[in-house]
Design a binder for these strands. Structure first.
Ligand SMILES: Nc1ccn([C@H]2C[C@H](O)[C@@H](COP(=O)(O)OP(=O)(O)OP(=O)(O)O)O2)c(=O)n1
Ligand SMILES: [Mg+2]
Ligand SMILES: [Mg+2]
Length: 888
DNA sequence: ATCCTCCCCTAC
DNA sequence: TAAGGTAGGGGAGGAT
């Protein structure tokens, strides 16, 4: 729950009641808020709230009071202060809601009927001939105009000329759930199953009834037999069998081998891309040579909806492709021979390849289980293409000797060209693509042969009748950016011209760890979902522990059967789904499966997805403790390097910028005339030098600013000379903090003036006044004395209002909670304790002469501290930390 | 302007 | 029957 504005009774009291009776209070309004308590609400605010995916009930605080009085959770119906029931009704009536939508969509589509028709045609074409798999299920559904918005079948285009007709897209498909009182109970199912037992039962009852009555109950039952619900070790078995899991984890294992991007990048002479020919299939043919001249595919099934993992070149002649369903492959090639997976053998071969590559070359970047780039720096005597061909030939021979499988290699001067060359080299060949011939080579390719042009992008361009790179080459960079987005436009423009600016090693360290299961998910009860989340959490935790990482952000991703979508065509597949994701951040790094599971269930509840409709579920952990310092906290840097190094880095950055500029111009010269470019370089260089100078000027400027700030209105003047000693960037942060603080103080004063006339101030972010957010980005807020002084000052300044104006008291609570969070962030239990103790003392001290008020004060003080600790408890999930804190 | 959240896309 | 995972790049749009 969240409280808006001034309420009667006061928010402090309400918060106390809410937390005491099992509700959860949010300081700020967010999507988790189901009820907003208010006595009145501005129209503008209401409008905003109603727009939300799950608009809250807007309820009079009397509701809380009455609930508490009667000891029962009463319906909010009689306490709604805004009658948004009209909205509710609209949402409830999904049928009419979606019908309206449909019409809109169809109108939208028919107005562009030409283009959407051509999508359909080209899709039909490509699906029957050569294609990179997208299975018919997803395919056909996406084509059906009644079910999918146009936006989905085209690329997302940055600038949409007709914004007015876009609304009936994803937004509306995300089904704003009808808000009912019951909804709330559903949300709590995970948390307090027993207490909500009647509801749970009725849900389950309804489901089982459905199962009996619907005619498709039998196939559903069959599905259930093999689903995640019926196998207690589903995740383990699944991960053991999944080829995609296999190649993903294999790649992950290599992560540590690839150097990180920081490695000073030497300029390589050549780049070679090496990729095994139909890797999985090759292994099978190796061990059973009789298969060599027959079409084979690696799969679990000989027909039906099983995926093909890899097909040999003989099968490819029939159009059989990886990712294709056996059913379709069987149609294309009735004599197709299916061979099983042999993961262990793939591992062995991959290790051998890895060894061979490393024995020939220093710089090896592993891309996947059957694929790697190598960069040639000093391996050749004269750096001639002949030598290169020799070396690569030698490597390929060794690979074949050791693995009895063939590899192909593309060679050129950058990764893009090498990779493109590989395709031409296959099977069992090698090909050198000269950068000078890049454009003439690329213009004959189909667009999907350019990396980054995947299924969607291909469809998007096909729909504009673009299939060849030559066609794309006539688009300007600006036009491409308009079509496919800023970054992709840029890279695509460059790629089409054979330009690839990626550094050879670009691994910036892990950013996330996750588990996902989008297969076999068929549940009927929330309890099953809950159990599955427990297991998933354990799985993700074990992966975290394996890698020795922890994270702060917990992400839940789910697939929900699309409204009216039929049972998946693929056996136990996810079918046509809407995707949702929801995340939360805990204030410290964790790898605790209980915590993760609790939070994920919270998140799941917020999404309100019926167990029956769930088709896929994933947990991701982000904001890892190992993620390479995007934390650019100046202090962190300072602790790592000394200031000198930092300055050097600055200069390096500037230099490399210069190089970049030159690089850019060099490459564009390929297509442009060069007359004007030189001057550009010169001006750019100049401005870079200016920048360098500014860096020094910056220090002076800052110096003056700092002097002013240090003099002006600080409670605790910081030793000026101390600051002056600091490196420039730390100074800059301090200045930022101080400026910010000063601004806050000014604003507060302004508002105080206002308050005098209005008697109702709404200050909400005085919080960081005490925290130095820039400087203490990730470092302890250590100076407890300082903190205490600030709080005391603040308290004394406001003590007049403190006990009369609940807003002021509320603000106080907020500040303290924020500070506790900051401490929890750093697991600084000692300071947190000190703070709590200090607050208690502060509020209870100074015996007043007026006895009556004094007693009230004592009660209020206790109430307040309880509220603080409880609010804190709601925010901080680390049980250990909270318990320690509360057991003062 | 920059960050954060919730997506979508791509690659093997 | 079948095992549709996983990490990173990136964009839109809201919050700050
Ligand atoms: N959709 C896919 C793509 C690939 N793989 C697996 C099987 C492949 O053998 C291996 C390597 O992928 P490649 O893209 O290199 O494909 P192949 O090696 O099979 O064929 P190619 O000769 O085109 O490289 O990854 C898979 O299981 N499913
Ligand atoms: Mg391969
Ligand atoms: Mg490969």
């Amino acid at each position: 729950m969240n409280i808006d504005g001034h309420t009667e009774p006061s928010s402090v009291i309400l918060i106390g009641l809410i937390t005491k009776h099992g509700g959860s209070y949010r300081q700020y309004f967010d999507s988790t808020v189901t009820h907003l308590l208010a006595c009145q609400l501005a129209h503008s605010k209401l409008k905003e709230l109603v727009k939300r995916r799950n608009p809250p009930h807007i309820v009079h605080p009397r509701w809380i009071m009455d609930c508490v009085k009667s000891g029962v959770l009463l319906s909010v119906k009689d306490y709604l202060i805004v009658d948004n029931s009209r909205n509710t009704v609209q949402h409830k009536d999904m049928r009419s809601f979606t019908t309206v939508n449909r019409n809109n969509q169809q109108k939208f589509i028919s107005s562009e009927s030409n283009s959407s028709n051509s999508i359909e045609n080209s899709k039909a074409c490509s699906s029957s001939t050569s294609n990179q798999t997208k299975n018919k299920e997803d395919y056909n559904f996406a084509l059906s105009p009644s079910s999918t918005p146009v936006g989905k079948s085209t690329l997302r285009i940055k600038k949409k000329s007709n914004t007015s007709s876009t609304p009936p897209t994803i937004q509306n498909n995300i089904t704003p759930l009808p808000i009912e009182t019951n909804n709330n109970f559903n949300r709590q199912q995970f948390i307090i199953p027993e207490r909500r037992a009647p509801i749970v039962n009725s849900t389950t009852f309804m489901i089982s009834e459905k199962n009996q009555s619907v005619e498709e109950s039998r196939p559903l039952k069959d599905l259930m037999a093999k689903s995640a619900a019926s196998d207690p070790n589903f995740i383990g078995n699944y991960m053991k069998s999944s080829r995609l899991h296999f190649i993903s984890t294999w790649k992950n294992k290599q992560r540590s081998k690839n150097p990180t991007s920081s490695t000073a990048d030497k300029k390589g002479v050549f780049v070679v891309h090496i990729d095994m020919d139909c890797f999985f299939a090759s292994i099978a043919m190796r061990d059973n040579p009789s298969l060599k001249n027959k079409p084979i595919a690696v799969s679990y099934s000989t027909d039906g909806t099983g995926d093909i993992s890899s097909a040999n070149y003989c099968a490819r002649d029939f159009g059989v492709r990886a990712g294709m369903w056996m059913k379709q492959a069987r149609e294309l090639c009735p004599d197709l021979i299916v061979v099983p997976y042999e993961f262990e053998k793939y591992n062995e071969a991959a290790s051998k390849i890895d060894e061979i590559l490393n024995s020939h070359c220093e710089r090896v970047k592993i891309i996947s289980i059957d694929e790697a780039f190598i960069e040639i720096t000093n391996e050749l005597k004269n750096n001639t293409v002949e030598e290169l061909n020799e070396l690569v030939s030698k490597i390929r021979n060794e690979i074949e000797r050791e693995t009895k499988c063939t590899a192909s290699a593309g060679m050129s001067t950058n990764q893009l060209l090498a990779r493109i060359a590989t395709k031409k080299a296959k099977p069992n060949g090698q090909f050198y693509l000269d950068a000078k011939e890049a454009v003439s080579f690329i213009e004959n390719l189909n667009i999907e042969e350019i990396p980054s042009v995947g299924w969607k992008t291909k469809k998007f361009f096909n729909q504009m009748s673009i299939t060849k790179c030559s066609q794309l080459l006539s688009y300007s960079k600006t036009e491409l950016k308009e079509l496919v987005g800023e970054k992709k436009g840029e890279t695509l423009y460059n790629f089409l011209r054979g330009i690839d600016k990626r550094p050879f090693f670009d691994d910036t360290g892990r950013k996330s760890v996750g588990v996902e299961v989008n297969y076999g998910i068929r549940f009927t009860k929330m309890a099953q979902v809950s159990e599955f989340i427990d297991k998933l959490s354990i799985e993700v935790t074990s992966r975290l522990k394996n890698e020795n990482v922890k994270g702060k952000a917990i992400v839940l991703k789910v697939k929900k059967r699309k409204d009216e979508a039929p049972e998946a065509k693929k056996y136990l597949g996810h079918g046509i789904c809407d995707n949702f994701s929801k995340s939360c951040t805990v204030p410290y790094f964790t790898d605790d499966s209980d915590l993760i599971s609790r939070k994920v269930k919270d998140l799941y509840n917020q999404l309100s997805i019926e167990a029956e409709d769930l088709r896929g579920i994933a947990i991701q952990i982000q904001k890892l403790n190992v993620t390479r310092n995007n934390n650019n906290s100046s202090l962190t840097k300072y602790l790592k390097k000394d200031a000198q190094q930092l300055e050097e880095q600055q200069i390096e950055v500037l230099n490399s910028q210069n190089e970049d500029i030159i690089d850019n111009e060099d490459s564009t010269m390929l297509v442009r005339s060069h007359s004007s470019t030189k001057t550009t370089i010169i001006t750019e260089k100049k401005s870079a030098q200016q920048k360098k100078k500014e860096k020094h000027a910056f220090r002076l400027d800052e110096f003056c600013e700092l002097e002013n700030l240090a003099k002006g209105g600080l409670n605790e003047p910081i030793s000026f000379s101390f600051i002056e000693e600091m490196p420039w960037d730390i100074k800059r942060d301090i200045i930022k903090d101080l400026t910010w603080k000063k601004k806050q103080q000014e604003q507060k004063e302004k508002e105080k003036h206002k308050e005098e006339s209005e008697n109702n101030g709404d200050i909400d972010s005085t919080v960081e006044e005490v925290t130095f957010p820039y400087l203490f980005n990730s470092i302890h807020l250590e100076d407890m004395t300082y903190v205490k002084e600030i709080i005391t000052d603040w308290y004394e300044e406001n003590s007049d209002d403190f006990y009369s104006d609940p807003e002021v008291a509320n603000l106080f609570v907020e500040i303290i909670v924020q500070m506790l969070k900051a401490y929890a962030d750093n697991l600084d239990l000692i300071s947190a304790r000190q703070l709590i103790k200090f607050i208690r003392k502060l509020l209870v001290k100074e015996p007043s002469n007026e006895d009556v008020i004094d007693k009230d004060r004592l009660t209020l003080a206790t109430d307040l501290t309880n509220t603080i600790t409880q609010a804190f408890q709601n925010e901080i999930i680390d049980v250990e930390f909270t318990n320690c804190l509360l057991s003062l």
